[in-house]
Design a protein around this nucleic acid. Structure first.
Ligand SMILES: [Zn+2]
Ligand SMILES: [Zn+2]
Ligand SMILES: [Zn+2]
Ligand SMILES: [Zn+2]
Lengths: 163, 163
DNA sequence: GAGAATTTGCAACATTATAACATTTGCAAA
DNA sequence: TTTGCAAATGTTATAATGTTGCAAATTCTC
């Protein structure tokens, strides 16, 4: 019943990136946050695909750019982008992916394909509710919810043996 | 309506550890897996508390023990213990915690207190179902589900300001 | 323009995890 | 009981990821 979401659906990814960057500019302006050239470039790199990118991968590209970058350059940019909800860190991969719900308050749920590495971010209200209920039952006060699901995406399921 | 689970409830933790070790021996015997002295010692160390322990923390204790240990010693033992469902890795902390549901097939959900570091592992069928449904809606085939909730445990909520 | 605050450059360092290869140990068949 | 294999461990080195601290530069505010 549901249309398959990006990145599983073929899409114009250049437009995808352009939109993400435009949204980011709007969000930062609204918040008086400075989307400096380095930060914007890092965001753009993270958005190069729907596959998570490691901090040192970002660093390598910045270096190719001619940018005189060191690890803190990248981590600081990533911190900024995370704080403003523009990228997410995927803890199980030590890598970063662009947020597809930027601007809205949310705790994403990530479907991570172990074969092609694409990541789909969902907002699943029922999951969020169930997690919240389970925490409440233990009198636990949740602040940050991380849900990462590894498996096979639709495309890779078909290629895989034994269905 | 639910009784608060370990580790939030005061309990005889020595018995807690003893039980975990006994279970581990039984599980390994049943599987013809060898719970060697190093592996058992690492499991015991992980169980020293309900707080996650880093691999290098384990290593330090092994070294104190007089054991001539290097990082691979610890990581190999931890791999073994994970494969047999005796410990879990908490990705958001790069640390390991004893499994409180050893032997049963399960994907735990972890409530991690940011104040006291205690971790409570739950099996939340409703959460599991909701995650599974959300994945199915995207034709995604889940293999490994990681749910880590950071926040405040009951005890630390009371100490904290602003409730 | 002067002063304060934010951002960046830079060097060193800390932490977490793995690769590669030699050695030993446990176990079983000959 | 020897012999031979597979699993487990020891050992060294290195890779990958992330942080600290301080100085210089930039931007913002007045
Ligand atoms: Zn998001
Ligand atoms: Zn895939
Ligand atoms: Zn206990
Ligand atoms: Zn606590």
């Amino acid at each position: 019943m549901s249309t398959s979401a990006l990145p599983y659906r073929p899409h114009n990814h250049d437009a995808c990136v352009a939109q993400a960057l435009a949204d980011a500019r709007a969000i930062c302006q609204q918040r008086n946050a400075r989307l400096t050239p380095t930060r914007e470039r890092v965001l753009e790199l993270i958005w190069q695909s729907h596959k998570p990118l490691g901090a040192y991968d970002v660093l390598a590209v910045l270096t190719e750019d001619g940018h005189n970058a060191a690890p803190p350059t990248v981590y600081r940019a990533l911190d900024f982008l995370q704080q403003h909800g523009l990228v997410h860190r995927i803890a199980s991969l030590n890598a970063f992916v662009g947020c597809t719900h930027a601007g809205k308050h949310h705790n994403g749920m990530f479907l991570i394909c172990r074969s092609c590495s694409n990541v789909l971010e969902l907002t699943a209200p029922k999951v969020a509710q169930a997690v919240s209920d389970a925490a409440s039952a233990e009198a636990f006060q949740p602040e940050d919810v991380m849900i990462e699901v590894a498996g096979l995406c639709p495309a890779c399921r078909m290629d895989a043996p034994h269905d």
